[in-house]
Nucleic acid binder design. Structure first.
Lengths: 105, 105
DNA sequence: CAGTATCCTTGTTGATACTG
DNA sequence: CAGTATCAACAAGGATACTG
């Protein structure tokens, strides 16, 4: 049932859901954007991401670590794993689309 | 301040936020996936997207129409606009990543 | 510096029933 | 078929204060 092309886009419903479970939080894309440049410490995120509260930042960082997107040395900075780096094409496409169709506020 | 490459990825913070304001809802990616195949009617979504309630479906459809992602003829089916079709690369990248790193449930 | 603890507000979703 | 109305439940986010 259903067209084949649909299967090609989303073989199992979970694929997109999987990406969304990582990217579907308010500040995650911004955190990842920072990490694509270089590893960062807690206070560096606080400086570069305006208006994020320590509670939320901590929450996002924990989630991302649990999901294997980032890793942190004993008390070192946070860095992307390979899995995290592989998110880059998505982020770039989103930035692409977003700059073509900015939300007018 | 900051590295140049960061600017290249996300020139203005709003770019990614813009994409997320469209894709950041639970069922949106699935609705769009269906529309990438061909225009669909309300009941067709209800059949192909398991467990979505009419209220949520209606809400998503309205949002997407307001955002100019989809359009609907007088009482015809819903179809993607150009703006909506331009989301395809994002969806494909998400599906890509998601199939490489499926969420184990 | 690097977070954690509380508490509160809101957005989003879900269930169910109903209408033109 | 194509939705809307109502209400309840929950998750996410925000504000603020505090600690090792």
């Amino acid at each position: 049932m259903g067209r084949v092309s649909q299967q090609q886009i989303e073989p199992t419903t979970g694929c997109i859901a999987s990406a969304m479970s990582v990217l579907g939080h308010k500040w995650t894309a911004l955190i990842l954007r920072d990490l694509l440049v270089s590893p960062k410490r807690f206070c560096e995120f606080e400086k570069s991401i305006d208006n994020i509260t320590p509670r939320i930042l901590s929450q996002r960082l924990s989630d991302l670590e649990e999901q294997g997107i980032i890793e942190v040395s004993s008390n070192g900075p946070y860095a992307l794993t390979q899995k995290g780096q592989d998110l880059m094409p998505i982020i770039k496409q989103m930035a692409n689309w977003g700059s073509k169709y900015p939300t007018k506020i």
